[in-house]
Amino acid sequence: MHHHVLIVDDEKDIRTAIRRQLSGTHFEILEAEGAEQAMELLGANALTVDVIICDVRMPRISGVEAVDYFRRKHPTTPIIVLTGFPDLDLAVDFMKEGVVDYLVKPVEKEKLVEAVQQAAKQRKIFES
């Protein structure tokens, strides 16, 4: 049974860094450059994506819009939002939307791994 983490970020550097940080876990990494690609991947792998990590600032379709879409189409998949700028108002809004965690870049490995594992547990709860 595969466990995937879907990383949605327009910056290749970030996707690479997160991939590296999660390389010690049992999760496999799926990468998407933006919301459209993420939606395609989700459509194909809905059952196996345990966690979505999504950046806030993206061109074309923003993180906010993407999160909204994920929540509607895949309500049981937990979302961790990643941003370069701590914004309390935005954090509160996201939490209200049902996002499970809000992380500020750069995130240290231990913290990211912890957040992903917690999120994956939430997924199991949702599923059951």
């Binding site: 550097d13 970030i14 590296r20 700028f85 870049k105």
Partner: peptide, 24 residues
């Protein structure tokens, strides 16, 4: 600044992840 934070955080994230790898 709000844009540059972005410009600084990206390479910084890479540095962080590589430093963690070297450490571990």
């Amino acid at each position: 600044v709000s844009g540059i934070g972005h410009e600084i955080n990206n390479p910084l994230y890479l540095v962080l992840s590589m430093a963690e790898t070297i450490r571990d």
